[in-house]
């Protein structure tokens, strides 16, 4: 099934109205900078991962990242994250057409939490296209689920942030209505990434599935959630080299703790599950 993107128009406004006796005031504060139109460039389905087979994720497509990042030289995965990634079914499993990445509060290999991170490096990489996933997110202080992409490292000759990072979706568990879309590159990485956040306001990310996606082409990356386009990033928006013109691969993970979300709260409920209905790529 192909999914047709609609043209969309932003409809998020803040409204305030002040009326004085005898006068009529009408004040409408709509953020016109969000009021953008995009053309749907990519309609040819080239990856349709529907998680059709129960068990471990399809090894033809997915790799596991294991551990706490120490083996990669970045303990805490560079962000002081608290989890240990495993490939155990307790942390990552496909059931009934849904990929589940499950963060647990348990002592494991010296870490206080376990979770999973899977990626498609060298198994599925693409330059440009529409990358989207339908996801139901976990919740609670300290949970950090993400659907994101990293650029090819050219056989190890390039390192982050030069390789580029496109974060299609990041979420703080303590902000259940807000998704964040970012790019990281040389001169604009980490805390200086180019980010925009979108607040559903009257819905949440942890109570139902939402489609998170980017449309990525030469000199633009458009971010959307469901039918709402909420940002476009172009070379003009980044304070450095535009590094989004080679192949990128896909990553799905749930981190626990870390600089982006802060520590897990005393009331945070575990286990927490990120459910992914599908991942699709069009070019």
């Amino acid at each position: 099934m192909k999914r047709k993107m609609k043209f969309m128009k932003m409809k998020k406004f803040n409204m305030a109205l002040i009326a004085a006796i005898g006068l009529v005031f009408l004040t409408v504060g709509c953020n016109t900078d969000e009021n953008q139109q995009v053309i749907n460039h990519y309609t040819n389905l080239v990856l349709d991962e529907g998680f059709g087979a129960n068990g471990s994720p399809d090894s033809e497509l997915w790799n596991f990242d294991i551990g706490n990042g120490a083996a990669e030289g970045i303990p805490g995965w560079g962000n002081n994250e608290q989890q240990y990634y495993t490939d155990r079914p307790e942390n990552v499993i496909v059931e009934d057409g849904v990929l589940k990445i499950i963060a647990r509060r348990e002592q494991f290999e010296g870490s206080p939490y376990t979770s999973a991170r899977i990626q498609t490096k060298n198994k599925f990489q693409r330059q440009y296209g529409r990358f989207e996933a339908r996801i139901k997110l976990p919740w609670g202080q300290g949970l950090w689920p993400a659907f994101w992409m990293l650029g090819d490292d050219q056989g190890g000759t390039e390192i982050w942030p030069q390789i580029g990072e496109i974060d299609v979706m990041e979420m703080r568990g303590q902000e259940p209505t807000i998704t964040h879309g970012s790019v990281h590159g040389p001169g604009y990485s980490g805390g200086n990434a180019v980010t925009k956040s979108y607040d559903l306001v009257d819905d949440r990310l942890d109570t139902g599935f939402h489609v998170f996606g980017v449309e990525w082409g030469p000199n633009f990356i458009n971010y959307y959630i469901d039918d709402v386009l909420y940002n476009q990033i172009t070379p003009e928006d980044v304070d450095g080299e535009w590094v989004f013109d080679d192949e990128f691969y896909i990553i799905l993970n749930v981190a626990v703790g870390g600089t982006f979300v802060g520590s897990v709260g005393a009331d945070t409920v575990f286990p927490q599950t990120m459910e992914v209905d599908y991942v699709r790529v069009y070019n």
Partner: peptide, 12 residues
């Protein structure tokens, strides 16, 4: 209220 008010909501 003493005057004609017209309110428009831009929210969903």
């Amino acid at each position: 209220a003493m005057a004609l008010l017209m309110l428009l909501s831009c929210e969903r």
